[in-house]
């Protein structure tokens, strides 16, 4: 049995027939080849797979592709505009907010969701907002700095 889904990813429309049990993250990675979204746990506990679904951060391993039917999705590949890095991407680079980079796409998109809701968060608010995203490399120190830097520079 397969279902028809149609959605917009990074401004491009896609239509596919998918198994109803296919996770959104597998749809993005394996159907669309957008492998920037990573999988760390498949159980909604690490945040590596975070994308924006209609503007809100969603762990794409907790959603089925069919549930995203009709949605507009932004993945890490769609964050830069016209080759110019998003303020969060730039700040993560400038302030060493990543090491292995595996958590980074999810971390950046979770932070983008925060800055959308709260353009001027303090460190405590940043840390709270990112508690669903595990980073095993950075100890979070530079991630927090990077998000604050992006906020100061106007990330939205």
């Amino acid at each position: 049995m397969s279902y028809h889904v149609q959605l917009e990813v990074n401004g491009r429309r896609h239509e596919r027939e998918v198994e109803p049990r296919m996770l959104l993250v597998h749809f993005l990675r394996e159907e669309l080849g957008l492998t920037g979204t990573n999988v760390g746990c498949e159980t909604s506990l690490c945040g590596a797979c975070t994308v924006l679904v209609d503007g809100a951060a969603v762990k794409s391993c907790t959603q089925l592709a069919v549930q995203a039917d009709g949605a507009s999705i932004t993945t890490i590949e769609g964050l830069a505009t016209n080759g110019e890095l998003h303020a969060l991407q730039q700040a993560f680079w400038d302030l060493h907010g990543l090491q292995c980079g595996y958590c980074t796409p999810g971390m950046i998109l979770a932070a983008a969701d925060l800055l959308e809701r709260n353009p001027d968060p303090d460190d405590g608010e940043i840390r709270e907002a990112l508690k669903g995203n595990v980073c095993r490399c950075t100890g979070y120190h530079n991630i927090v700095r990077a998000v604050r830097r992006a906020a100061e520079g106007g990330a939205a």
């Binding site: 920037g36 890490i76 830069a80 991407q89 993560f92 990543l98 980079g101 980074t104």
Partner: peptide, 10 residues
Amino acid sequence: EDPDLITGRG
């Protein structure tokens, strides 16, 4: 290393 990793190209 970072430009690839922050854009999903890694």
